[in-house]
Deep mutational scan, measured.
Amino acid sequence: NLAEVVERVLTFLPAKALLRVACVCRLWRECVRRVLRTHR
């Protein structure tokens, strides 16, 4: 699944970079939201 791969990669990025990549597309924005939720 593409979303799972994107989420896996996003887990390695710092928070500032996550906010930046959330603007790329809807899929990435949803993935960033899930990554941020799991880090809390």
Rank of each mutant, 00 (worst) to 15 (best):
N1W: 01
L2T: 06
L2K: 03
L2A: 00
A3G: 11
A3F: 14
A3M: 13
A3C: 13
A3Y: 13
A3E: 10
A3D: 04
A3K: 15
E4W: 10
E4P: 06
V5M: 11
V5C: 04
V5H: 02
V5P: 01
V5L: 11
V6W: 14
V6M: 13
E7T: 07
R8T: 03
R8C: 02
R8P: 00
V9G: 01
V9H: 01
L10T: 05
L10W: 11
L10S: 04
L10A: 08
T11W: 15
F12Q: 15
F12Y: 04
F12V: 08
L13P: 02
L13T: 05
L13K: 03
P14A: 08
P14F: 10
P14W: 11
P14R: 15
A15N: 03
A15V: 07
A15I: 04
A15E: 07
A15Y: 03
A15L: 06
A15R: 14
K16M: 02
K16E: 04
K16Y: 03
K16R: 13
K16W: 13
A17P: 03
A17G: 10
A17W: 14
A17R: 12
A17K: 14
L18A: 10
L18N: 02
L18W: 15
L18K: 15
L18C: 09
L18Y: 08
L18D: 01
L18T: 10
L18E: 02
L19Y: 07
L19W: 05
R20N: 11
R20D: 01
R20M: 12
V21I: 11
V21F: 10
V21E: 03
V21W: 12
V21K: 12
A22F: 09
A22K: 14
A22M: 08
A22N: 08
A22H: 03
C23N: 11
C23D: 12
C23R: 14
C23K: 15
V24N: 08
V24M: 07
V24E: 02
V24S: 04
V24K: 09
C25M: 14
C25W: 12
C25G: 13
C25Y: 10
C25R: 14
R26T: 01
R26E: 04
L27G: 11
L27R: 15
L27A: 13
W28G: 08
W28N: 00
W28P: 01
W28I: 15
W28R: 01
R29N: 05
R29G: 05
E30F: 13
E30T: 09
C31E: 03
C31F: 15
C31S: 09
V32L: 08
V32G: 02
R33A: 08
R33P: 01
R33M: 07
R33Y: 03
R34T: 03
R34V: 05
R34P: 02
V35T: 04
V35I: 10
V35S: 02
L36V: 09
L36S: 06
L36F: 11
R37Y: 05
R37L: 04
R37D: 07
R37T: 07
R37M: 06
R37P: 06
R37F: 06
T38A: 12
T38W: 14
T38E: 05
T38P: 08
H39T: 15
H39K: 13
H39D: 08
R40H: 02
R40M: 06
R40P: 07
R40I: 10
R40V: 09
R40Q: 08
